[in-house]
Simulated assay, not measured.
Amino acid sequence: MRNLDVTTLRSFMAVADSGGVTRAAGFLHLTQSAVSMQLKRLEETLGLDLLDRSGRGIALTANGEQLLVYARRMVALNDEVIAKLTDQAYEGEITLGVPHDIVYPSIPQVLKQFNAAFPRVRVHLVSSYTRALRDQFARGECDLILTTETDAAPEAETLALRPLCWIGAPGGTAWRQRPLRLAFCRYCTFRPKVVEALEAAGISWDMAVETESDRTVEATVSADLAVHTMIEGTEPPHLERIDHNGALPDLPLQHINLYGAQTSRGVVTDTLADFLRRAFAGAGVSRLKAG
């Protein structure tokens, strides 16, 4: 009688979902060789080839596709049995990546809710730029990430669509100056779209501040020395949306995307993903009106 090992099935699922052994190893917190050995053991147990390794990437064979359906059910049932019969106290660490500009106001509330549900699981919050977060996610260094992008990535789940809005100092006049003085972080994904909108509107501009520090940008804008853009609803209390009466161009909608939650990854990760959905999805789609 041959018996399937749930651990090897979990590794098989991770490889199938992530599209590669390296990334799956990062998610599972195992070495690449350990995951490869588990896959080999699973294939030897069944006497079947489950992965097609002939191409540049890894694809499932027909047998692999069939096994994946059963593997999901078996792993889910295993986790349900453990949770129900042992009433285990979950513990460990989960890594969540969030762009600087959408940490507030939603993420503190998400962390509070998650801590109440899993007090022994530590959330390692990584705050960086969308481009850097996607690179980290691809390397398996983050379990879940949020991004701000101008489109909906096929491998991600869009939680909300919100417009960019012009941000300045309370009662400030920097937005009236020409050339328009801008303050942006060097790797900000909004920056190319903002410049494109200004060029299309025929508005001259000058990059007054180019930095890697969000604090530097905020200080400059607070001093009314430049303007900035942020996703609607994420501006801090010491800055305000600019009531420009159409003097500045409309800016594109931004997708707040969630990566890593397209398939079940266990109760801890799934719960955190649900909290993120609730925090951002309620905003829906809105468009800031000029004036």
Score class of each variant (00 low, 15 high):
14 A>T: 00
225 L>C: 09
140 G>Y: 06
51 L>F: 07
232 E>V: 01
286 S>P: 13
117 A>N: 00
184 F>G: 04
88 Q>V: 14
168 G>C: 09
61 T>N: 13
221 V>N: 00
148 T>R: 02
222 S>Y: 04
45 T>K: 13
233 G>Y: 07
239 L>Y: 03
167 I>F: 02
9 L>Y: 01
130 T>Y: 05
24 A>L: 01
61 T>Y: 15
207 M>P: 08
15 V>I: 12
135 D>W: 04
269 T>V: 14
146 L>E: 06
29 H>S: 15
32 Q>D: 08
176 R>I: 12
278 R>D: 15
18 S>E: 14
220 T>L: 02
147 T>N: 00
49 D>E: 03
261 A>I: 14
257 N>Q: 15
16 A>H: 12
266 G>S: 09
9 L>S: 00
141 E>L: 11
252 P>R: 02
209 V>P: 00
162 R>H: 09
260 G>W: 12
284 G>A: 08
44 E>C: 03
118 F>W: 05
43 E>D: 05
47 G>F: 07
81 V>M: 07
38 Q>P: 09
75 V>L: 03
19 G>N: 11
163 P>E: 13
70 Y>R: 15
61 T>K: 13
73 R>D: 14
95 T>F: 07
104 Y>A: 08
47 G>E: 03
5 D>I: 15
110 V>W: 00
163 P>F: 03
